[in-house]
């Protein structure tokens, strides 16, 4: 839950430029909403790596792992398990 709040805060601050929590749903697809562009997704990966001291492997950079807050949280939970 703590990481979920952190990733939400990161996305809100850096891509929605807002603190309004209602603007971001946990299942919003970054791809479909156009929230993040191709350089933005790299920033999200860097954030995950720095926060959790894990490495996101090249072949893990897929929508199933990264395309929404829910997907990111589920991915890192599995990774840390």
């Amino acid at each position: 839950m703590e990481f979920q709040n952190k990733i939400r805060k990161f996305i809100l601050e850096n891509y929605l430029f807002s603190e309004d929590e209602s603007l971001l749903k946990n299942n919003d697809s970054f791809l479909e909403t156009g929230l993040i562009d191709s350089t933005g997704i790299l920033e999200v990966i860097t954030f995950i790596q720095d926060e959790l001291s894990i490495t996101v492997e090249d072949d893990e950079m897929i929508p199933e792992n990264l395309d929404s807050v829910d997907n990111v949280v589920s991915y890192v939970s599995k990774k840390l398990a």
Binding site: F30, S38, D58, M61, I62, P63, D67
Partner: peptide
């Protein structure tokens, strides 16, 4: 429609 995930 997107290059967000180049692996795909």
């Amino acid at each position: 429609n997107s290059l967000l995930y180049p692996h795909t």
